[in-house]
Design a protein around this nucleic acid. Sequence first.
DNA 1: AGCACGATTAACT
DNA 2: GTTAATCGTGCTC
Length: 206
Amino acid sequence: MTRLGREFFARHTLLVARQLLGKRLVKLEDGCRLAGYIIEAEAYRGEEDLGCHAKAGRTPRTAVMYGPPGFLYVYFTYGMHWMLNIVTENEGFPAAVLVRAVFPSQGIARMAARRSSQPRRSWTDGPAKLCQAFEIDQRYNNTDACSQESQVFVENGLEIPDSSVTIGPRVGLYSVPEPWKSIPWRFRIQSVLAALQAQCVNSNSA
DNA sequence: AGCACGATTAACT
DNA sequence: GTTAATCGTGCTC
């Protein structure tokens, strides 16, 4: 399976966020391959977007979002959590997609070990949880997911029909002013089972 | 140098 | 539903 190339990410952030649903997030570790289908993603786009870190302009932290698409923006928050983003759009325009949840498909044992205090359903159903399960942290910030050498990247996966996708406001932007607080830039698969069934129907008819 | 805050989570009541 | 945990970042002095 081939990695998604830079052209995939060099598009409008809303389109990339939607298209990332069903794709596979992959991490190669020594002797182990972790993978999960992306089931939730959010778009953060431009300095005008007051929910986006780029609202502060180009700073040491946000510089990666101004760089080429396909790079990882991994940042730290609440004193303990890492968040995984993938930079989008053309170099010079700051934007990224936050990967908020995945459905584990490979490397289950290693995810289980890292999330052992929690039930299986809670292993990767939040942006910081999946980073913990995949052990993604500052080491991966500002790395190129489109490089053949990258240990973290995205592969093609399932086709997700619009009927399986719910769109709504982004999560956790408590003090962000409108319209950014409520703008519907969150995309998620409402039912993994329904998406798998849809995929099944597509394969049979193809 | 100090300060307020946060794209969250887990453990409470 | 509420709240503590915990520290890098960006802003102000």
